[in-house]
């Protein structure tokens, strides 16, 4: 199989307002790998994503990406001015060569068909995250870059969203680089964890990182309570909290 990395981040330094936000950050992302950046607020997670995306220029260091690589990006927060009358479907159609049928298929796949004609400002946090995820999937990405994908989603919904992300990785054969706050949830759905606090404190397989002294000192008590989240309910909630029978039921109504 293809074992050369699709993104190589080498020796990144970023300085903002006289303070080093990132120092000496290097890592490699391989095809089909799910890599998660965790770290406290202000640890430079979002800045690192922006460097990888090419939105922020590092003071030092390089980001090498494989040629002809599609990136699907899911931003952290979308707050759209309510004066803009735009439906979910219309938002997803904004872009080059977007076909209605293609967008409809993707919406059905991610389970947001029922909000297609709703104003985008009116849908719930969980639905909005799925809409953004759908958009990220529209141009056949080789890499998904997700900035706190579960923001504004309740705990059950979060587990479901992570499940969906690893399902997407398998279905699309794409790598995933994401930022997360949800320590215990993300452990179960990731191949590699990078613990960031302006520099890389530790990295590796989630099980080894969760035992690492640097990780424990960074997250203290929160880390001690981690049990990898694997238990199952006898019923199932969707991202809004309503009970559903099938995990990925798409609503055609």
């Amino acid at each position: 199989m293809n074992s050369s990395p699709i993104i190589q981040v080498h020796d990144i330094h970023v300085k903002r307002q006289g303070k080093w936000v990132l120092q000496n950050v290097s890592f490699e992302l391989f095809p089909k790998q799910i890599m998660t950046l965790i770290g406290p607020n202000g640890s430079g997670k979002t800045t690192l994503l922006k460097v990888v995306l090419g939105l922020t220029k590092p003071n030092q260091g390089t980001v090498r990406k494989q040629a002809k690589m599609n990136i699907g990006y899911m931003p952290q927060r979308l707050s759209i001015n309510t004066t803009l009358p735009i439906t979910v479907e219309k938002f997803l159609l904004l872009g080059k060569h977007r076909k209605k049928s293609h967008v409809a298929d993707k919406m059905a796949e991610i389970g947001i068909s029922h909000v297609a004609s709703h104003p985008i400002q009116s849908i719930s946090g969980g639905e909005l995250q799925r809409v953004l995820l759908t958009r990220a999937l529209l141009n056949q990405p080789h890499v998904l870059i997700l900035d706190e994908p579960t923001q504004g989603v309740d705990v059950n919904g979060q587990a479901e969203l992570y499940e969906l992300i690893s399902h997407i990785r398998d279905a699309y054969d794409c790598a995933v680089l994401m930022v997360s706050h949800d320590l215990h949830l993300v452990m179960a759905a990731t191949d590699q964890v990078i613990c960031l606090n302006n520099h890389i404190c530790c990295s590796g397989h989630p099980n080894s990182v969760s035992q690492h002294p640097a990780y424990l000192s960074l997250f203290g008590d929160a880390a001690n309570n981690i049990a990898t989240y694997t238990h199952h309910h006898n019923h199932h909630h969707d991202i809004d909290g309503s009970i559903v029978t099938h995990p990925k039921a798409s609503d055609d109504g």
Partner: peptide, 18 residues
């Protein structure tokens, strides 16, 4: 039109999308 509209929704998303 499309570029302006997407920038209105999310500037960085627009930038990443080229």
């Amino acid at each position: 039109w499309r570029a302006l509209l997407l920038m209105t929704v999310h500037c960085e998303l627009a930038q990443v999308e080229g």
